[in-house]
Design a binder for these strands. Structure first.
Lengths: 335, 335
DNA sequence: TAAGTTCATGCAATCGGTTGCGTTATCGCT
DNA sequence: AGCGATAACGCAACCGATTGCATGAACTTA
């Protein structure tokens, strides 16, 4: 395959001149530029990125870390959509995207360090679950820009991140339910250890107080993201004297359980009970009835994370910041 | 960050010697090797892979192409599992994995050519859906080894591929149903345009003839992979005089529809009707009742594809070949 | 002991680009 | 005509590794 020397020879110039026309230097005459470009076409020449990397000290590559321990990113179609968004921006920048798995539990940052030390990557996008202090220390030490997916919690350091606006998303879901006439809304699926869950609860509460409703703590149920627990809590809620007429589920699996519970107690959805869950299109659409959800544009989430990363790569002075992606309501059949 | 010269200087040797100890050349004395290694630790040295790439003319990188148009790989958790399997082997080889999206419809191979011409990749794993003749031509022209995921169909060229053993998988599902006492088994979800679907039908038919059953063509239904079509065909099948007592569904969405149909006709699962579908754990487990499936070890599928790719990378004389990944039955509640 | 081997290591070119600095030719101006 | 300025390009060093060949020392062997 042709290299820069071949082009130079064929065009009767030096490699410097070829290099400068490739990089669009102003000090080359239009005539020679055109000649060189036509030679490049003829020879089917493309610059060798490896060589470019070596001289420019850039890998033209960014890395997406995936948390293999996290069932969420692991089995979830979200993951691919996020990657797709990242990929779009990365290729627009003529970079390529490398993917590496890492386990949050084994605190093993070796892959990252390996990539960095081998000079294989210019930046990293990683789930907040993996962003320990040790990880940050490594990234800072080697001066590698990074962006977290998900708002990091309990960090001294300030970092760049993007996350879903879970609070506002839940608020909007609440307003939507109010609008549809639902008045006694419960919240199913609180998980105090997870920020997104707490944020969703915040939205739930703030919407209630905005609308002058009281907060009934028994309407707020802590449970795992499983169909089973969703079912049990829903049964329990529905058998109270004062039962809810709508439910916000923190997860689609929970919503499946809740729907099953409604079916067993012969409550009609959405007439007797409204249900809104968070988005997992595949599950939401296959459910019967189909689940109305808070829709999260995860493609956009990925895209924005990549954008932030490149801002850091291009301007190392750029200060870190957080960004919230707003949501919308995807109306289906349960509300 | 320390480079090979720093190490050489600190150890009082030439860079050649350092390079040779890194690459485990036999012609370096044990004493100096040890000294150099200890210096390397001290200086926290890792070889610059970019430089290595330039001299060795290898990128130490392989590329996974994803078909963005294919809803299947796109939304499907399978995708991530495949990638995970690939990734495992790739990192074992001290390569890194780059991911690129491509659309099968727009026949746009630019990303691949861009990666190849930029010398960014040593090999490609790509879905058979994308493996057009034009694509093969490009890959061959630049001498880039590649492996298809899915058995390619209608190609003159012989290529390497890995696929799920859909025929045997369906056969085994049939044997399992026979064993459980089901006798009149239908096949829901034939899609003649897709090889995997035809292979599943082959398995269905061969199991029937093995067991001396007749093939009732009305028991074989062509339909799309949607809940809706699954539902309609199932209703139709169940209202026949001679109705099936078990169904093999080519897809979990279809199975959801089938289950809904059984519910409406008050048929009990698995007592009155047995159902086996192909694996999509997330859907299978959230269904009520949970769906018994033909389990596909997609992690293994990915791993094997990567293995094949490296065989081609390491030995360009290696002939292309196909590999089938065997399946197993994951018993849940529907059969 | 001189010549031939073997062992351990260094020299320098090379991979394919980039870039600071120097060089040449042309032009404008006095 | 002479001089400085400017435009357009080339030279050569450099990025961080690898490797064929050369070299010197130690060791064999006759």
């Amino acid at each position: 395959m042709a290299n820069i020397k071949d082009v130079a020879k064929a065009a009767g110039v030096s490699t410097s001149t070829v290099s400068r026309t490739i990089n669009n230097s102003p000090s080359i005459s239009l005539a020679t530029k055109e000649r060189i470009f036509s030679v490049m076409k003829e020879l089917n020449y493309s610059p060798n990125m490896i060589a470019k990397s070596l001289t420019n000290n850039k890998s033209y590559t960014v890395t997406l870390i995936v948390d293999v321990e996290d069932e969420k990113s692991y089995q979830n179609p979200f993951f691919y959509e996020i990657m797709h968004g990242i990929e779009r921006h990365v290729y627009r920048k003529e970079y390529s995207l490398i993917v590496a798995n890492l386990s949050s539990t084994q605190k093993n940052q070796s892959v990252i360090e390996w990539l960095i030390k081998g000079k294989r990557t210019d930046g990293v996008i990683l789930p907040a679950s993996i962003l320990s202090s040790a990880m940050i220390e490594i990234l800072r030490k080697y001066n590698i820009p990074f962006v977290a997916i998900g708002e990091p919690v309990g960090l001294k350091e300030s970092v760049s991140w993007v996350d879903v606006d879970n609070k506002k998303g839940t608020e909007n879901a609440m307003y939507y339910l109010f609008e549809k006439g639902y008045r006694n809304i419960g919240f199913l699926g609180l998980n105090k250890t997870q920020l997104f869950s707490r944020k969703r609860l915040e939205g739930y509460k703030s919407a209630l107080s905005d609308e002058q409703h009281e907060i009934d703590n028994d309407f707020i149920r802590e449970c795992m993201n499983t169909k089973k627990e969703g079912y049990q809590h829903m049964i329990d809620l529905l058998q109270r004297d004062h039962r809810p007429d709508a439910i916000i589920c923190a997860d689609s699996h929970i919503a499946f359980g809740a729907i099953k519970a409604c079916g067993e107690l012969h409550l009609r959805i959405p007439e007797d009970i409204g249900i809104i869950s968070y988005d997992n299109s595949q599950l939401a659409e296959i459910s019967d009835p189909e689940i109305t959800t808070v829709y999260v544009d995860v493609f956009e989430l990925g895209l924005q994370s990549a954008k932030q990363l490149f801002e850091l790569i291009e301007d190392p002075q750029k200060i870190d910041q957080g960004l919230l992606i707003s949501t919308s309501i995807k109306v289906r059949e349960t509300a």
